[in-house]
Design a protein around this nucleic acid. Structure first.
Lengths: 356, 356
DNA sequence: ATTGTTTCAGAAAGCGGTTACCGAATCAGT
DNA sequence: ACTGATTCGGTAACCGCTTTCTGAAACAAT
């Protein structure tokens, strides 16, 4: 039978190991052995092979190599988007740890779409990723849970791992490593900090119900109020649609325009919202922290720019831990670990004692 | 001969197409055809195959598929780090356009190390990436240039493309698509804006000599001074070691402590430096923009947080353009295109007319 | 009933590597 | 000089999939 050329690229075909062998006057086995690792070849042979490789500009075909049995292991990371700083930092952590462990890193984004996330996991599975790390929340329905559960089992069956970062487990019988961080604790600390400064009317800004991350933060907020015996007023919990700057701006703008201005402090569910809210306040002639105290969440760029007291998240450590646990667990087997990383308050200068 | 199992994973082996075929009672050819695309199989056969796939939880081996001839094309992006917002946005653009073109996206980071960059390009070549997109500056020596030039030629030979984003061409005879953006023009606009507001003593903050990106910005700054017939004072050009917030803070702190406070405006070479400088100014009791005017560069988060006038860079468009040009050029051949994308000033509220 | 078309499915040849197995040549030991 | 241990390098069997070529049914047409 006649086969088409390996790939109908417009240029030349890439050279193969057979061509190298021919040019060097040795067998393919010798070339393969010399190229991969330390094989006791005679210096003359080695030189000839290397020269042939050089001249033909030979590069091994990673697919063939993988198929034949030895390929660089890779770990996959699937996230919402790379432009979100939190995800980017997690990705950075994954990359760093993957490099330490001698693994390569595949990355894919979903845009927050559950369907695309499933597709990415399937793809990463085809790519033989040793671990598939899912980062961040998605809005998930029944079918999604079922499919993802299947994937988790399937990955486990072939010795890979599914890792969930910053999201709750899929279920008690779904084998997945889980790396969470303490949203509730962070929110508790943030809110307590405001309460200790004498603030009682604290606006909680930006919750989107159904997102576990934010649910945790709101829960911490409420718990802190309860602990300080401050009545919880649902009217102080403002719901948003996204977690972005403009939404923070919009929410605060609207609140100042229509709602009562009866709050003295703001707990924003992330730094972007905090920053947007700050701008809205400024435009209203209210200064932070002189007139209104503000606490953010995430400890990312906005809190640095605005000198905001905020909740520090171990972004990179989440990624590093995910890789470490996945690889450890792969080696050991057993019940997948579930860790919750700590968060802590970073005090800068956006909170003042309430003047009464 | 006896072969080891495909992979000695601790779990089961992953099932192969042969097992599916056996279970479904058909040949591997039939399974392959049914799974990939529209093959006129009888409904009964199709059903049997699908059931077998389901039951065995079969997932095709991407490597084998690639080796046999049909694989999803992928484009590779190699950058300094994903936590740098500029790079992240470029990566986002690449991803977006790659998705549009039906390509997958491989990503690798270098940490700014030229050696690692070379290694990544080699790796991506092994992975059969259709295009390898290099983003951002590296400090490069002779050898680096030589090697990278070879890679460019090698990639071209097999119908792939090397793409350089935000960095100058490697040389006149090195085939690489180049997507730059107008650093000098942006800096010219930014500086002119300050000059028009009456500022003449403009601090230029954060240059690292040898980095082409920043050289371009400094050139624009000087050109604007010349155009306005304002004498250029080298003492106003402050050199830094990194392009980060802390360095901006440090530089301004130092300047205020030791240098003459004879400037009325600052042109920061990026937003992070601008933000750090703002903080230092604030700590010195100087307000932006009331006491000192400030212009940044990049139009990223810090300028949003601080309401900074800044130079907008088409971050995502750089990425999209890179992919588009690489693919177009691949189809057409010929001399690789070299485009320079425009930048423009975004006027917010960090510049005030000089009070004299 | 026989022949000409379709339709559907199988056999087998690769894709480009790796590596188990084996043979030839080189070296040392007596 | 002859044998046994090394050293080097070749032969060929896979890895798991795609696809060409080919053939057997199934159907329509004469």
């Amino acid at each position: 039978m006649t086969r088409r050329a390996s790939e109908p690229v417009n240029g030349r075909r890439r050279s193969t190991i057979r061509e190298v062998a021919e040019r060097a006057g040795v067998s393919v086995a010798t070339v393969s052995r010399i190229l991969s690792g330390d094989y006791p070849a005679s210096p003359a042979t080695r030189k000839r092979v290397m020269r042939a490789v050089e001249e033909l500009d030979y590069v091994a075909n990673a697919h063939a190599r993988a198929l034949a049995g030895t390929s660089a292991k890779s770990i996959a990371i699937v996230l919402n988007s790379v432009i979100s700083p939190h995800y980017a930092h997690v990705a950075q952590g994954v990359e760093a740890q993957a490099a330490v462990e001698g693994r390569l890193c595949l990355i894919g984004t979903t845009g927050g779409d559950a369907e695309r996330e499933l597709a990415m996991v399937k793809f990463m599975r085809e790519q033989h990723a040793e671990a598939v790390i899912l980062v961040g929340n998605v809005v998930a329905d029944e079918k999604y849970h079922k499919r993802m559960g299947q994937y988790a089992h399937a990955l486990t069956a072939i010795g890979s791992r599914l890792v969930l970062c910053g999201r709750p487990p899929l279920g008690p019988d779904v084998p997945a490593v889980v790396v969470e961080y303490d949203n509730a604790g962070g929110a508790f600390a943030a809110t307590s900090h405001l309460l200790s400064a004498g603030h009682e009317r604290i606006l909680c800004l930006g919750r989107r119900p159904g997102y576990t991350t934010q649910d945790g933060r709101v829960a911490g907020y409420r718990k802190a109020l309860a602990a300080h015996r401050v009545p919880h007023d649902p009217a102080l919990e403002v719901e948003g649609t996204t977690m972005e700057w403009h939404e923070g701006y919009r929410m605060m703008k609207e609140r100042l325009a229509t709602g009562p201005r009866d709050f003295t402090a703001v707990f924003a569910l992330n730094d972007l919202i905090a920053s947007g809210a700050c701008r809205a306040l400024t435009e209203h002639g209210l200064r932070v922290p002189d007139d209104v105290s503000m606490v953010g969440f995430d400890d990312l760029q906005p809190s640095l720019d605005l000198n905001l007291t905020t909740v520090h998240l171990p972004h990179e450590e989440i990624g590093r831990t995910a890789v470490r646990l996945a690889l450890e667990h792969e080696a050991r087997g057993g019940t997948p670990p579930h860790v919750v990383l700590g968060t802590h308050l970073v005090i800068r200068d956006s909170v003042r004692p309430r003047v009464s």
